[in-house]
Design a protein around this nucleic acid. Structure first.
Length: 824
RNA sequence: GCUGGAGUGGCGGAAUUGGUAUACGCGCUGGUCUCAAAAACCAGUGUCCUUACGGGCGCGUGGGUUCGACUCCCACCUCCAGCACCA
């Protein structure tokens, strides 16, 4: 058969049904076997797969298949991140049920995955919208509630007035609702939160143990958690003596504090201005900032507005009375909601002070401009230097002064060293339908009560009308709302909010290990066997939220005694995006290449090979219609070579009787096995692994095997090696060729080839000769030749002696088996 | 601004305990085959000078270390990504 689209389609469907029937990729936990857990981030079921999925899942598939051939018991599951807003939107738009829509998409994706030849254990396929899955969301929530980690509080949230729902920060784009494009408000609402901050310290510290994560992901998480060391200082209101705690990371600048600023929401503000002439004015200002959106207030380039309260605060280190202002650049959520302002050494304070003509005082001398006066400053000096105008700390270097002043204040009882975090608790309430119902009940006598665990799941009711008019659909479903109190049995009311879908994805990797368990969330021993995930692969867009939440859940479940690992994911690879004409593929740009049409024309193997060969997995990948022809052509050559040489000759080869040709091919076989094995094991550099297999192919195609039976055997060995090494990348074709060559299926059961270091040793080596740093000649010499011998050979070389030209040789440097550098 | 990363042919990209820059592939040029085309195969392909032999210059820019630098050091430029009034 010639290598045609038709032949490829025959081969691919043949092996896809073989794998299905044989359940080739089904696994069980077995402590007698060494395990490998290979995981990709599960997809949102949106319909057909796109190139991003193809890339992500092909990378994972190669890792999984490679590890299988290396003899590992490989867990390689897939599932669907099936709750969420897109399904609800589609339901509104098409007037269908979100569940129906979702399951239709899942079916399409499932079929696409089969067509790609992915090696999933289909018995573990999960969907988060399945009640057997989200039941355990509810169970986890209740465990958190019992430990005080799930709690309800009122706080300002993004609120879309037209959709009547809260929005996550990431759902607010340019201060507009991502769905209806209306302006978003701030609203104070009672919502459910998860106390992720309980784990701040561990989440930060354990980043250090994640040696096999990309450094930028760790850096992003570190920034997000945002630990800062500082001092909480007690300023006092001058008249009443009421304490105003202020947080600073720069206690060394305290002598330069010339005013204090409170956030507009600060509870003290109202008391300070009550019954004073400033009252009306200050309240007007607070009203004004309230109406400003969080988005506008938080943008750094916004001009800083503020107003004097008429009150004064006493600086604890020098007794100085300084004015108390209210300003929008101080945020209630961070620190204590109050700051001491040091305009000379903080840029924001500097701008604000200039704007409002507030006093300034230099307390740290800029070593570059020691004579600098306040009037000449054009910006704050935020660097380090010696303290001036700072009482008994004059002359102390600022870095040292941070410690000394903090300690001194602690001794005086006016300050305390503390730590502040940027990380906030996680708001998980959503006023939406297509999600996990939060399993809580409100009872008039018992208060807020969790649903009893025996009654889980709280099933999401079907046939709910989703109009898109706003508000929670469940809140309009009386049969759902009415329920007896789990504690006293009296008539009570269910929570109608659902969980943010990031909850669902924070632990799905645990469910795969025991996907069908109906008794408990998972069997502890099974999960102990499979965890941690050895290789996790997904997009960089999840660098913070999903990966941080998963780390949090892992630590929580560990503390419940269900897990023995501290971290869920050992190695992490963030794959790059697939571009076309320099842009990310997207429907709106109209530059989408549909994987289905590529598979129809070239087959899945060609697509897989191309996508791995075009770029290293972490880099962006530019789609190239021409280069996919190259991938096709290469597989055609493998096919033809295997068909041609797979005769029944297979006597052993004996390197002693090799001629130079044989020796060269033999060495290339072993060099290729070594290179591919290393590239697959360590950095997942599939592009260079493939190029090395191409080099071996180029060589074996030139090899003339007609001379002897041994030559034919050697050639067979070469082509067998190519088939084995390519089988994780182009599995359908390699299964077919493996069978054609007389081996029994599946090639996945064959063992990964090993290489012999002895075979890589060469008799002679090509040495480069440099004269005065320039390459002038290449000389073939025996391996490990002595300097003496080399000198003799090289100086006898006419070309070299021409460059030396009788001049004195000042240096003769030998790099063994590589190069000689002569200086004259 | 802060954090992380990247700059190599016409293109995607190789190469770092410092040792032949451009592996492998795409594209392009010429050839074989063919009535012709496609496919396939063979040869060539950084750039400048030279008919050729050969030589000069070349890994973002400028310096430095070294017999030797894509690789190490210093300074800078550009681009990408994330965070950003966080006190």
């Amino acid at each position: 058969m010639p290598y045609t689209t038709h032949e490829i389609q025959r081969i691919e469907s043949k092996w896809q049904s073989f794998w299905q029937k044989q359940k080739t990729f089904q696994v069980e936990a077995d402590p007698a076997k060494k395990k490998f857990y290979c995981l990709e981030m599960f997809p949102y079921p949106s319909g057909r797969i796109h190139m991003g999925h193809v890339r992500n899942y092909t990378i994972a598939d190669v890792v999984a298949r490679f590890k299988m051939m290396q003899g590992y018991n490989v867990l390689h599951p897939i599932g669907y991140y099936a709750f969420g807003q897109p399904a609800e939107n589609a339901a509104i738009k098409n007037n269908t049920d979100p569940g129906e829509w979702t399951y239709r998409c899942i079916e399409q994706m499932h079929n696409d995955f089969i067509k790609m030849g992915f090696s999933y254990d289909w018995d573990r396929e999960i969907a988060t919208c399945d009640e057997q899955y989200y039941k355990w969301n509810q169970w986890i929530f209740i465990q958190m509630f019992k430990k005080g980690l799930a709690y309800k509080k009122a706080s300002p949230v993004n609120w879309c007035p037209s959709c009547e729902t809260t929005l996550a920060n990431e759902e607010v784009i340019d201060n507009k609702c991502w769905r209806c494009k209306n302006e978003v408000d701030q609203k104070n609402l009672e919502q459910w939160y998860l106390k992720i901050t309980e784990y701040s310290e561990q989440l930060l510290k354990d980043l250090e143990t994640l040696k096999n994560w990309p450094s930028r992901v760790c850096a992003m998480q570190e920034n997000w958690i945002g630990k800062s060391y500082g001092v909480e200082m007690c300023f006092k209101e001058a008249k009443t003596g009421e304490v105003i705690p202020v947080f600073t990371t720069r206690p060394d600048t305290i002598f330069g504090a010339t005013y204090v600023v409170l956030a507009p929401e600060h509870p003290l503000v109202a008391r300070l201005v009550a019954d004073t002439p400033k009252e009306t004015e200050v309240f007007a200002f607070i009203e004004k900032t309230k109406n400003l959106s969080r988005f506008l207030r938080m943008s750094a380039d916004q001009s800083k507005e503020g107003i004097f309260t008429g009150a004064y605060a006493v600086n604890p280190v020098n007794g100085e009375e300084i004015p108390i202002w209210v300003a929008d650049y101080v945020l209630m959520e961070y620190g204590t909601g109050a700051i001491m302002a040091v305009p000379t050494h903080d840029q924001r304070d500097f701008l604000f002070a200039r704007e409002h003509s507030l006093p300034m005082r230099i307390v740290i001398q800029d070593p570059q401009q020691p004579e600098l006066a306040v009037e000449q400053m054009t910006e704050a000096f935020i660097g380090q230097g010696k303290l001036v105008d700072s009482g008994k700390f004059n002359g102390v270097h600022s870095e040292e002064a941070k410690q000394k002043i903090a300690q001194w204040m602690e001794g005086q009882g006016t300050g305390q060293m503390t730590v502040h975090w940027r990380l906030r608790d996680w708001l998980i309430s959503r006023q939406r339908y297509w999600g996990t119902p939060i399993p809580m009940v409100y009872c008039q006598t018992c208060g807020v009560v969790p649903v009893s665990e025996q009654q889980l799941p709280v099933v999401l009711p079907k046939n709910i009308k989703i109009t898109g008019e706003g508000g929670s659909p469940l809140a309009r479903c009386q049969e759902f709302i009415d329920t007896p109190c789990p504690q006293c049995g009296a008539q009570a009311r269910r929570e109608t909010d659902t969980m943010a879908t990031f909850f669902d994805s924070s632990w799905y990797y645990l469910r795969y290990g025991d996907a069908k368990n109906s008794e408990c969330i998972f069997d502890v021993e099974k999960i102990q066997y499979w965890m941690p995930v050895d290789q996790y692969i997904g997009g960089i867009e999840h660098a913070i939220l999903h990966l941080l939440y998963s780390r949090f859940f892992t630590k929580f479940l560990r503390d419940l005694g269900l897990l023995t690992v501290d971290e869920p994911f050992d190695r992490l690879l963030t794959q790059g995006m697939v571009l076309k004409d320099g842009d990310v593929m997207s429907k709106s740009r109209g530059n989408v290449v549909d994987p289905g049409s590529v598979i129809d024309r070239y087959g899945a193997d060609t697509l897989r090979l191309f996508i791995l060969f075009a770029a290293p997995p972490e880099d962006q990948l530019e789609w190239n219609d021409g280069a996919i022809d190259g991938a096709w052509k290469f597989l055609a050559r493998v096919y033809n070579a295997a068909r041609k040489s797979c005769r029944s000759v297979s006597s052993a080869v004996d390197p002693v009787s090799f001629d130079d040709e044989d020796q060269g091919l033999y060495r290339e076989i072993h060099a290729t096995v070594k290179k591919v094995t290393n590239d697959f094991s360590l950095d997942l550099k599939f592009n260079t692994a493939i190029s090395q297999v191409m080099i071996l192919m180029n060589r074996l195609e030139k090899f003339d095997a007609s001379g002897s039976e041994q030559k034919q055997s050697l050639l067979n060995q070469a082509i067998e090696t190519v088939v084995l090494l390519l089988s994780p990348i182009a599995p359908h074709l390699c299964e077919e060729l493996w069978g054609d060559m007389g081996f029994s299926p599946s090639v996945m059961r064959a063992s990964w080839p090993s290489y012999d270091e002895q075979a890589l040793i060469q008799q002679t080596v090509l040495i480069v000769v440099q004269v005065n740093g320039k390459v002038r000649a290449k000389v073939e010499v025996a391996v490990d030749a002595s300097e003496e011998e080399l000198r003799k050979v090289i100086l006898a070389n006419a070309k070299i002696s021409g460059y030396i030209g009788g001049k004195e040789i000042r240096k003769f440097i030998v790099v063994p088996n590589r190069l000689i550098s002569i200086v004259v």
